[in-house]
Amino acid sequence: MSSTILHSVGDAAAEAPVMAGDAASLADEKNPFLVALGERVRALRARRGMTRKQVALAADVSERHLANLEYGVGNASILILLQVAQALQCSLAELIGDVTTSSPEWLLIRELLEGRDEATLHRVRVAIGEMLGTGGAAVHSPRVALIGLRGAGKSTLGQRLADDLGFPFVELSREIEKFAGCSVAEIQALYGQNAYRRYERRALEEAIQIYPEAVIATPGGIVSDAATFNLLLAHCTTVWLQASPEDHMRRVVAQGDLRPMAASREAMDDLKGILAGRAAFYSKAQFHVDTSAQPLDATFEVLRRTVREALGLPV
Rank of each mutant, 00 (worst) to 15 (best):
S283F: 03
L69Q: 06
R202V: 12
L231W: 07
D164M: 00
Y211A: 01
S62Q: 07
M50N: 09
K178C: 09
P260N: 08
A56Q: 10
I128Y: 12
L204E: 15
F281W: 11
L82H: 05
F167E: 15
I176H: 08
G115R: 04
S264L: 05
E39F: 02
Q89P: 14
E130C: 01
A20Q: 09
A195D: 10
A310D: 08
N194Q: 15
L82Q: 11
A46L: 09
G277N: 11
Q86R: 14
E206R: 12
H248Q: 05
L311Q: 11
L57F: 11
A43R: 12
V215F: 00
T156E: 15
M19R: 09
A20E: 13
N194D: 15
V315M: 04
G97Q: 09
L44W: 05
L313P: 04
Y71W: 11
T134L: 07
L132S: 13
R250P: 03
L88F: 00
T299Q: 00
K178R: 15
V315R: 04
L92W: 01
L57A: 14
T134V: 07
A16L: 08
V289G: 01
F229R: 07
H65D: 14
S77C: 08
R304K: 14
L296P: 02
G277Y: 03
A276M: 04
A185M: 03
R174S: 15
Q86K: 10
D22H: 09
H65P: 10
A203K: 06
W106S: 15
S283R: 14
A67E: 15
D98Q: 12
M249R: 09
V289C: 01
A262I: 00
E246F: 02
I216V: 12
R308N: 12
K178D: 11
V126C: 01
G136F: 00
L113I: 04
S244L: 02
N31H: 11
R123G: 13
G97V: 05
A93V: 00
E205G: 09
D117K: 00
A195C: 14
L44K: 08
F167N: 13
D98T: 02
V170Q: 14
I80T: 08
D257K: 05
V253N: 13
R123N: 13
D247N: 08
V84Y: 07
G153C: 03
Y196N: 06
A76C: 11
